[in-house]
Every structure is written in structure tokens, then in C-alpha cells.
Design a binder for these strands. Structure first.
Length: 433
RNA sequence: GGCCCUAUCGUCUAACGGUUAGGACGCCGGCUUUUCAAGCCGUUAAUCCGGGUUCGAUUCCCGGUAGGGUCACCA
């Protein structure tokens, strides 16, 4: 097989969305699997809606996702007029197209229409098998706004040819565009690329995922605290899977496994709950240092690395992790609470609580600073708690240290807060009783 | 409406004629746990319907039904 060349051609008329990412991802996985190149180009023939900021948004999103690509030479269609000028007049000269009145509003303007041979077009789709359309219903469709301003279908065909694209992998919503592009390509005498139309990503109501369904842009998922590894892993498994029962993959592993013949035909519903599970799993796989770094970048403030293990088991997203720090992990700085909380929701009494707090203080005072690790503290305190009743002993200790009804376990708390400050907090709690 | 496509638990999916139809997410329950979370174990739940073909259909064919996509001087 000749070297594989694919392309990801977004039109910069909006933020990069989930569906676009999946298309880029499948194109990338296919090229990576086969050792090819994926070009990025901007289809901005619609001058009205195309905006530079959206180009930047797409570039930023791809960089954040770490999807590799090769920027095409002269990537904007709006700046490739010279290229298109080689072909449009030829199409007219050869009798495959003709200039026509634009319409009553613009009597002076001429558009270029394709002279439809009105025949059936069949193509072998790598996902769907043989697909046939009768192009008669298309009529003599418009392929250019003017002699040097091509419209989408023409520009796509010319660009794909010029870039040597071998495989066109795109969303199923483009399948009915394929026959007219083949018609144009045949008129131009180009080689037909292979096609693969991948299933759409659906909203819970099973219609094409769009803005009205909520978050759809990469930016939004980034802001929600999802990490690229998880997003890519999840998206890859929407409409494709390698067959086994493994679900967690790195981008390289996905590329190794990816083949078009395992791509599904039916659309797949995007379920954020499952994405959150992937995110939690990929977050757990990060080293504590890397986790702290990313969370720091997300939250815009430094994160105490000692909290990371606790965060990993509590948060599915960076956003949840940041909220956990704000809402539950304030104990590193200070604590304040209603003294009633020390009594285990009324199950204990002030006498019992202060008795245990006092005993605990004595035990703790005898532990050297270097013995203040969660494991060693548990070894020392557990026998006492176990003999006296775990709840009545450990609950007031935990509240004294965290000030919260819900928190990490008291041994972890002790280790995190340190001997000196822990003893101060226990003493302060005893006074409140 | 025309054309095209699709159809396994609620969702993502495995099975490429022979399985008690498997896994995952979620849900529910249990264990563990001073609390929360995590973890572990378990339960619930599916081949759209009807015809064929076949010794045998989730799987192949046809027809229904349902859903989706697309019908621009947008891409």
C-alpha cells in the first residue's frame, strides 16, 4: 500500500467540538497505525463565518489533546486561490462545468455549475461496504461562487488531490456528499481516495450531538476538569473497539490496535458518566507529582503534594479535586466547628470524649516526630481505640483535627498536620467540651 | 417527503452459524470502614417484530417497524 495520507479539515466557524475531536482522533489512529501522515487544513471558504480566533482555538485544543498532525502547506483554502484557478477554467473548457446566472438578486454575478452526467455512483466504504447513490437528483449543483472562488465540494476534491490524500475518514453526515465529490473528481481525472464514514456521536436523545445538548466543545471539557488522556480514550471507544475486554488505553496503544474494519456502523450515545470513570482512572495513573502539577494549573494555585493520594480516591475530575480541597481539606490551614460535632451526633458524651482525647494526648506525646506517619500512628493508637470502642475514640479525634463530619481518616490527618499542631488542636477541642 | 444509513442490557460494547448471550459504566444490595471516599463481592438488565435459508440463527437473506443522517451560492 502506498503511504497513507489522511486529513483533518475543520472549518474555523466554531470551537473544536467532541465530534471533531473524534474525527481527528480516528484519522490520527489510522495514520499512526499504518505509518502515514495526517494533514490539518482549514476549510474557510465561507468568509463570513470563518474566524481567526476559531483557528487558534482548534490549534490550541489539538495541542492540549496532544493529537499529532502535520500542518498542510498554505493550510487555508481562502489563500489557495491560485491552486483552484488551475482547475476551474479547465473544468469549463472540458465541458464539465459552465457559468450561469447567479439569480435575480445579483443579475451581474456568475456562479459555476457542475454539469451533472446524471449517473449512479457506487463506492466502497471501509466502514459500510458498498454504497450507491443516484446523482440525478442533485441537478447541476453549484461548485464555485465565481470563477476563482470554489465552494466546499470543489475545494475538498482539489485539496485532497493536491495533498495526495489516500483515505478520507469523516463523519457519517458526509456520506451523501461523497457521490458529488466523486463526480467532480472524475471530471478532473483524479484518483479516487478510499472512504470511511464513521458513526456519529449522539446525545442521549439519539440525535446528532450539538450545542443545544450542553457541553460539546473541548474547552468546556477542559474547564470541567477532564484530562486529554481520558477524553481520547473514551472517544476512541465510541464506535470502535479492539475486541478484547481491555478498556484503558494510552494513545499509543490505541494506535497500535486501530483498524477501520472494527469501526461500528451505528451511532453511539455520549455518556458523561462513563467519561468520568475514564477520567478517574487516568487521573489515578498519573504520578503524584504530575497530578499536583496539573491540578495546580487547573486551579490556578499550588497544590500540596501530600494531598494527592487522598484526592485520587475522591475526585473523578480536576474540578472535583479543586472543590474537595476548598470544601473538605481546609484542615491544613485551620479548623473551626461546632463543639457538638465532637459528640458523634449525640452518640457520645462530653465526659467520654474528653477522657479519650486526654488518653490520646498522652499516647501522642510519647511518639517522636519521625514516628508521625499514618502507618505508625495507626499501629500505636489502634489498640487503644479498639479496646475502648473505635467510634467514641476516633470520632472526636478526627473532628478535633479536621473540623469536619467527613474527612480522611484520623491517622492520615495526624501525619499531615504534624505533631505540634495536632496536639494543639486536640487540646483546643478538649477545652470546648 | 425523496435519497441514504442503522438496529445486542438504560448507556458503551463482545460474539465474525453452535456460548448458561460475556465485559464495562450507571443503578441497587452486601462486605470492609469511627465518617466520607476508595476498594472488594454480588444483584438487576439485552439480541426490535415477522418471514425465510440452515440440523442449528444475535450472526446470512427478504419484508415490516423504529430511529438517525442528508437534501444551500454552509461545511
Amino acid at each position: 500500500m502506498a503511504k497513507v495520507i489522511t486529513r483533518f479539515p475543520p472549518s474555523p466557524t466554531g470551537h473544536l467540538h467532541i465530534g471533531g475531536v473524534r474525527t481527528a482522533l480516528f484519522n490520527y489512529l489510522f495514520t499512526a497505525h499504518n505509518g502515514g501522515t495526517m494533514y490539518l487544513r482549514f476549510e474557510d471558504t465561507d468568509r463570513e463565518r470563518s474566524k481567526p480566533e476559531f483557528e487558534q482555538d482548534i490549534l490550541d485544543a489539538l495541542a492540549w489533546l496532544k493529537i499529532p498532525y502535520t500542518l498542510a502547506d498554505n493550510p487555508r483554502q481562502s489563500e489557495r486561490t491560485a491552486v483552484y484557478q488551475k482547475y476551474i477554467p479547465k473544468l469549463i473548457t472540458d465541458g464539465h462545468a459552465y457559468e450561469a446566472e447567479a439569480g435575480k438578486e445579483n443579475p451581474d454575478k456568475k456562479v459555476v455549475r457542475f454539469k451533472n452526467p446524471n449517473k449512479k455512483i457506487s463506492f466502497q466504504d471501509n466502514v459500510r461496504g458498498e454504497v450507491t447513490f443516484d446523482t440525478t437528483e442533485l441537478g447541476d449543483f453549484v461548485i464555485a461562487r465565481s470563477i476563482d472562488e470554489p465552494l466546499y465540494h470543489l475545494a475538498v476534491v482539489i485539496d485532497d488531490h493536491e495533498m495526495g490524500v489516500t483515505h478520507v475518514i469523516r463523519g457519517e453526515d458526509h456520506i451523501s456528499n461523497t457521490p458529488r465529490q466523486i463526480l467532480i473528481l472524475e471530471a478532473l481525472g483524479f484518483v479516487r481516495p478510499e472512504y470511511a464514514h464513521i458513526p456519529l456521536i449522539l446525545a442521549p436523545d439519539r440525535t446528532k450531538l450539538s450545542k443545544r445538548h450542553g457541553a460539546v466543545s473541548v474547552n468546556e471539557y477542559k474547564a470541567l476538569g477532564f484530562i486529554p488522556e481520558a477524553l481520547l480514550n473514551y472517544l476512541a471507544l465510541l464506535g470502535w473497539n479492539p475486541g478484547g475486554e481491555q478498556e484503558l488505553f494510552t494513545l499509543d496503544e490505541l494506535a497500535k490496535e486501530f483498524t477501520l474494519d472494527r469501526v461500528h456502523k451505528a451511532g453511539a450515545v455520549f455518556a458523561i458518566e462513563k467519561l468520568k470513570w475514564f477520567n478517574r482512572e487516568h487521573l489515578k495513573k498519573l504520578s503524584d507529582t504530575e497530578y499536583a502539577k496539573r491540578l495546580g494549573e487547573f486551579a490556578g494555585k499550588a497544590v500540596d503534594g501530600r494531598l494527592v493520594p487522598l484526592l485520587k480516591e475522591r475526585a473523578a475530575t480536576l474540578q472535583e479535586a479543586a472543590q474537595t480541597i476548598d470544601n473538605e481539606f481546609g484542615f491544613l490551614d485551620e479548623v473551626s466547628y461546632d463543639p457538638e460535632l465532637l459528640l458523634q451526633n449525640g452518640k457520645s458524651t462530653a465526659e467520654v470524649a474528653s477522657l479519650h482525647l486526654k488518653a490520646l494526648t498522652e499516647l501522642l506525646e510519647n511518639i517522636p516526630d519521625e514516628g508521625f506517619t499514618a502507618a505508625q500512628l495507626k499501629d500505636i493508637l489502634w489498640p487503644y481505640a479498639d479496646s475502648q470502642g473505635r467510634g467514641p475514640v476516633l470520632w472526636p479525634l478526627r473532628v478535633a483535627l479536621s473540623g469536619k463530619e467527613r474527612s480522611p481518616d484520623p491517622f492520615t490527618l495526624l501525619a499531615l498536620i504534624g505533631k505540634q499542631r495536632s496536639l494543639e488542636r486536640i487540646a483546643s477541642a478538649a477545652e470546648k467540651l
